[in-house]
Design a protein around this nucleic acid. Structure first.
Lengths: 153, 153
DNA sequence: GGACATTGAATGCATGTGCATGTAACCTCC
DNA sequence: GGAGGTTACATGCACATGCATTCAATGTCC
């Protein structure tokens, strides 16, 4: 009987410790960790589902990769001529080298042209061509349709 | 006066048409298009910022790519032995071939082992090793830290 | 039981990406 | 004005990924 009382006491101590941990210790940290990971995985699947779909359909319908379309989209949106190159890279998620090659690809297909900047001859202007505008106009429909399919609540 | 009344009438008709368009026509469609693109761009930058950071730090600190860590994370989480291969590919965003190579890489570094499935000898089990568990335990801290840095409101 | 389709995984191939580096133009400080 | 550093872009390289294909094991229909 004495023994039983003791073990009960210890059990209560244990319960209290757990409760303390939950309130401002590790347990609570672990809970928010799980929530964090959930949010991250949700972000992962969202992004990958949409990006994959987008990339495939843009390619099949218009021969454009996602990055290429995003670049065209930025060029159309702010159609004042500026030293695009670095600004595009900053605005898009792409690294500088990746953007360089993306623009090279677009240029090869006649969708943009590279122009030298007079004031700073290191800089490079990227100008969208008429063909570029046209193709973007068509691809934009595909783009919006797919976004609507996935992103509408 | 009659004339004035007429043009006023036409003007009112025009206003009504605009309003109708806004309510359930093109104007509203255009507005939601812009909102859609905003949400998409937000998703893009969120994902790329975090993924880039995560990939770099996991690589520098533990020699793991993001996909490799995600695979280990899944293996630890549900540690019952199952015909992982295809389930992993489905659970993660990866294509079947990409997962095959990811597992090959992990195996080469001794973090997982491949095991044959007796009931269906086409299937492949993926088992995490002790070294894999250990490395995952360390990498998990880095992972959670970076998620917290970006995903905490 | 044997021909044909299907499934699970591995692999050849093309490609897009990031990192490190190269190269030219610009800037600064003496 | 000339040396050293910085900036803007291009390029060599390694590599992860997706698609198409291959190969073996399984399932199906006659």
């Amino acid at each position: 009987m004495h023994m039983h009382s003791m073990s009960m006491h210890k059990f209560r101590e244990h319960l209290m410790q757990v409760q303390l941990m939950r309130v401002h210790g590790r347990m609570r940290g672990m809970e928010s960790d799980a929530a964090l990971v959930d949010r991250w995985r949700h972000l992962l699947t969202c992004y990958n589902t949409i990006a994959c779909d987008l990339d495939r359909e843009l390619h099949d319908a218009h021969g454009l990769s996602m990055s290429e379309f995003e670049a065209l989209d930025r060029l159309v949106q702010s159609d004042c001529e500026q030293r695009r190159m670095q600004e595009l890279a900053a605005d898009m998620y792409l690294s500088q080298s990746a953007l360089s090659r993306t623009v090279a690809r677009l240029e090869k297909h006649g969708l943009v042209t590279r122009g030298l900047c007079e004031s700073d001859r290191r800089g490079v202007f990227v100008n969208i061509t008429e063909a570029g505008r046209t193709l973007h106009g068509e691809a934009r429909k595909t783009h919006r349709t797919i976004l609507a399919r996935h992103l509408t609540d």
